[in-house]
Design a binder for these strands. Structure first.
Length: 878
RNA sequence: GGACGCAUAGCUCAGCUGGUUAGAGCGCUGCCCUCACAUGGCAGAGGUCGAAGGUUCAAGUCCUUCUGCGUCCACCA
């Protein structure tokens, strides 16, 4: 047998395991091997711009626990890895790089720029995959996909064409969220509301027929007045009843605009009159359509005012705002300025204030797909945990709005639409097909140009569960591994990703892509702030792996995962210490066990010949296995880990191994120690894969991939109530003696004698364990006495357990000990009294369920026995 | 403005369908380098379960209101 090295060095074993996993590929997935069927998980593809952060570490640890457990359960598991091209984010990174060289993407040109991006992706894009790998993620790495690889791009184009053919994609001029810095459209979800303290400017608009009279309008964006083409009031508003249709001369611009009536206007807000800027506000846009107003665009795409802004032409929008306000003030048209707290939309990538902007974009009509997703959801697909997110998900689907999918950037899937010079467009998977369509339409070859824009990143991500499996090709993998089992992700992307994947899954595969969605919390620092680079509070997972090990990182994080996860560096000590304990306990077992003890199962142990402690640990082990298995099944991983921690450290190491020290000469005890440890390693493997596998290999003296071993099965026949009682008696005796030793500062070298008084049965039990007790508490001698009272109790069936103990000799301060015991008696009596009070209440006896009453009675009698024990102990203290 | 979540030991959290004297880890105090482990062992201190009402034989657990934190959604200019 190879000996386990004396020191646990995480870095060494993790490197060793990773190398083996890479070589032998135990995570390789193939269809149709197991009778249990498939179990698929797709990774939420991290951005290629990304560096591993704690959020990834958590997300991937959860997935790995799930997939390793399922693999051990015998499923054909597939964990599909990959990365997302992350359009705007990645383009921004590379543009920044260019800026350092004094270059811009425009100066470089589209082709060269794309080359730079691909180059960047090749060099940096896979960093994160490598880091996930270091975490121990058991993905089938050979299948790693990228949202812009060739096959995936085919799928994206295919989907675009199919949706277009189904009438679900259209092009139109609408107000969209425009980022003037990125110079692209953003989806609603990409324009985040951020509270800000703005101002509300009240502006007087003079009437044409009487310039001394005004209508007052309020706005948070005064510069947009340059594009006003109406003023709107509520038709029910008496104040303006006679004014509808009146003409107003727009200040600074001189444009004549009318007062119109529209239900949208809230009478109660401000003056009740609203300036209408159809080209620069979504509500005004809608009003403009309803009333056939002019759409005056006053801004260039970069946020600089254009020719329509008259004297403000060429000014940045915020500069123009100041100038407009100043000009109005000079004209005496500014009634007042109020502070105004409101939410401003900002670009989710660069935080620039988003400008509602009129432009021609491609949209996906969402309602029909959302309705199907809703129907599925109401039939229970997918299940979402925690449940409280279900309503959020459902509401979004109910109130769904169309999805703007075109982006004016270069990095991404080019929109598969080609235009001829006559204003016609052709939607096709390839340019050749588009040309063919054009030829058919025009009767001759015509030159086409492809739409310069690309698709929203999420337009590729929403296909992830099936596009990664080869769709639109119908291959074996797709048939077998789709739909996937469980999706682990963060609640932030329910809308961006989860809901859209469901819709795509139904639309193109006729099946919801996953059964369960597990939404986990956010990793925060010790103060509860989100971890971010800019705050400087981020803990780098790689640093933790280096210092404490990947196992420690995983273990500590999961143990801490409630809702949101608060983490500081010290927390990782728990995981490292636990792994270290595991290491040393395994060393101890290895040192004390012969090869013959390496048995397959509990059936190979001679149970009848087994000592009570061994029977007890097997019984405790079965209980732990049951608990852990149930917790994992219900995705309560931190609870499972907690049970394992308690069982392994608190029960197996602290008690069993200590008790076993005097018993390990016996082969059956060796078998027990070895087998329980071996199975505990299996249970721990999904959580801490490196150290468990390394130890398992030593323990079994054979190369094995623990993830391919079978998950242990609960064997109820080894649950032994008798043994539990026996050991419980020993444990309480030992605890009490230790207590005495600590209390009275009796050194281990000092002798302590003990007189045990109890029924014959109880004494016999403890006597059987005397060597264990002596070893644990170093009692120099034990005397057994059966008092008349104990015999009586025993006969009456009151007390079958150990009754009490007496420390002898002059080492204990009798007076103090008496006081201590008296206090304990008082406390116990109080407890008993409270239960008795309950039991004596008529209402309780009548209304409480019988089992509860029985339990309470039992409890009272136990407490009374304890009180008697304590009293007798006191009477024996001379 | 809507919706939701959280308040339990100094800190971070368990406490699942209401039912033992409310738990763990870290931290703290004391004693131990005992031949697997000081990344360890043993013992101990520390809580009116955010506040006020209510339902119940019984409430940390259910209901209402309030307070304090947090999250998501949103077209009041």
């Amino acid at each position: 047998m190879t000996e386990i090295p004396p020191r646990y060095i995480p870095a060494d074993i993790e490197e060793k395991r990773l190398k083996l996993w890479d070589e032998k590929k135990p995570f390789h997935a193939s269809a149709g091997h197991s009778k249990k069927g498939p179990c698929t998980v797709v990774i939420p593809p991290p951005n290629v711009t990304g560096v591993l952060h704690m959020g990834h570490a958590l997300n991937n640890t959860l997935q790995d626990i799930f997939i390793r457990y399922k693999r051990m359960q015998g499923f054909d598991t597939l964990w599909m890895p990959g990365t997302d091209h992350a359009g705007i984010a990645t383009q921004n990174v590379v543009e920044k790089q260019l800026a350092k060289e004094g270059l811009t993407r425009e100066a470089l040109g589209r082709d060269k720029f794309m080359e730079r991006l691909w180059e960047w992706k090749r060099h940096h894009g896979d960093t994160i995959i490598d880091q996930l790998h270091k975490l121990g993620s058991s993905c089938d790495w050979d299948r790693t996909r990228f949202t812009m690889d060739e096959g995936y791009s085919t799928a994206v184009r295919d989907v675009f064409v199919k949706l277009y053919e189904r009438g679900l994609i259209y092009q139109g001029s609408y107000i969209i969220n425009w980022c003037p810095r990125c110079q692209t459209a953003l989806a609603d979800e990409e324009a985040e509301h951020k509270d800000s303290n703005g101002q509300l400017w009240h502006i007087k608009y003079p009437f044409k027929n009487d310039p001394s009279q005004f209508v007052v309008v309020a706005t948070t964006r005064p510069e947009t007045m340059l594009g006003d083409t109406a003023v709107a009031v509520n038709p029910q508003d008496e104040r303006y009843a006679g004014l509808i249709g009146q003409i107003i001369v727009l200040p600074l611009v001189g444009r004549e605009i009318a007062i119109i009536a529209d239900d949208f206007v809230d009478k109660a807000f401000g003056s009740g009159a609203v300036k209408v800027t159809p080209a620069h506000d979504p509500n005004d846009f809608a009003m403009g359509r309803r009333h056939n107003l002019d759409f005056v665009n006053i801004m260039h795409p970069n946020g600089v005012m254009n020719g329509n802004a008259g004297p403000f032409d060429g000014l940045d929008r915020f500069e123009a705002r100041k100038k407009v306000v100043k000009a109005l003030e000079e004209l005496g048209l500014l009634e007042k300025v109020e502070p105004h707290a409101h939410a401003v939309r900002r670009c989710y990538r660069c935080e620039t204030i988003v400008e509602p902007y009129l432009s021609k974009q491609w949209f996906v009509k969402m309602k029909p797909m959302a309705d199907k997703a809703l129907e599925a959801f109401r039939n229970g697909e997918p299940r979402i945990q925690p449940k409280r997110w279900e309503k959020v998900y459902e509401n979004w689907l109910v109130d769904i709005r169309d999805w703007c999918i075109s982006r004016q950037i270069w990095w991404g899937h080019r929109i598969p639409v080609w235009y001829d010079s006559h204003g016609g467009h052709f939607v096709a998977k390839t340019e050749a097909e588009a040309l063919a369509q054009a030829r058919a339409k025009h009767g001759k070859d015509v030159p086409l140009t492809q739409d310069p824009d690309v698709l929203d990143t999420w337009f590729s991500s929403w296909l992830w569960p099936f596009a990664t499996l080869g769709w639109p090709q119908e291959n074996m993998d797709l048939k077998y591994f789709y739909p996937t089992s469980t999706l682990f992700t963060a609640p932030e992307i329910i809308f961006f990703w989860v809901a859209r994947m469901v819709m795509a899954g139904i639309e193109f595969m006729d099946e919801v892509p996953f059964q369960d969605v597990i939404l986990h919390g956010t990793v925060r620092d010790a103060k509860g702030r989100k971890m971010s680079k800019s705050l400087g509070n981020a803990i780098d997972p790689l640093e933790i792996i280096k210092e404490f090990g990947a196992d420690a990182l995983r273990f500590s994080m999961i143990l801490n995962s409630g809702q949101d996860i608060f983490i500081s560096k010290e927390k990782f000590e728990i995981g490292r210490n636990f792994s270290n304990k595991l290491w040393n306990a395994s060393r101890f077992v290895m040192m004390n066990v012969t090869p013959e003890a390496r048995v397959k199962g509990f059936a190979d142990i001679d149970h009848a010949a087994l000592d009570p402690a061994s029977k007890w640990i097997i019984s405790r082990y079965q209980a732990a296995l049951k608990e852990v298995t149930e917790a994992i099944e219900q995705f309560r991983y931190s609870e499972a880990e907690n049970s394992l921690y308690e069982f392994f450290w608190g029960t197996y190491c602290d008690w069993y191994l200590e008790m076993a020290k005097s018993r390990l000469v016996e082969l059956n005890a060796q078998k027990t120690a070895w087998l329980v440890l071996s199975n505990t390693l299996k249970m721990l493997h999904p959580f801490i894969p490196f150290v468990t596998e390394e130890l398992y290999v030593y323990l079994h003296d054979t190369e094995a991939f623990l993830t391919l071993e079978a998950w242990p099965v609960v064997e109820a026949q080894y649950v032994d109530a008798g043994a539990e009682k026996d050991i419980q008696a020993v444990l309480s005796l030992v605890t009490v003696v230790r207590n005495i030793r600590a209390q009275w500062n009796i050194k281990p070298s000092d002798s302590l004698e003990c007189v045990l008084n109890g029924s014959r049965e109880a004494l016999a039990r403890v006597q059987q364990q005397e060597d264990v007790v002596r070893k644990l508490v170093r009692i120099s001698s034990v005397r057994y006495e059966t008092s008349a009272q104990a015999v009586k109790d025993s006969a009456a069936g009151v007390a079958g357990e150990l009754q009490f103990f007496i420390p002898l000799g002059g080492l204990v301060d009798v007076a103090k000990e008496k006081a201590r015991i008296m206090a304990e008696i008082t406390q116990t009596e109080k407890a008993a009294a409270s239960i008795e009070g309950r039991l004596s209440s008529e209402a309780f006896v009548q209304k409480a369920p019988p089992d509860v009453i029985a339990k309470e009675r039992q409890r009272v009698s136990e407490l009374k026995v304890k009180i008697d024990d304590l009293k007798r102990t006191i009477s024996c203290l001379i």
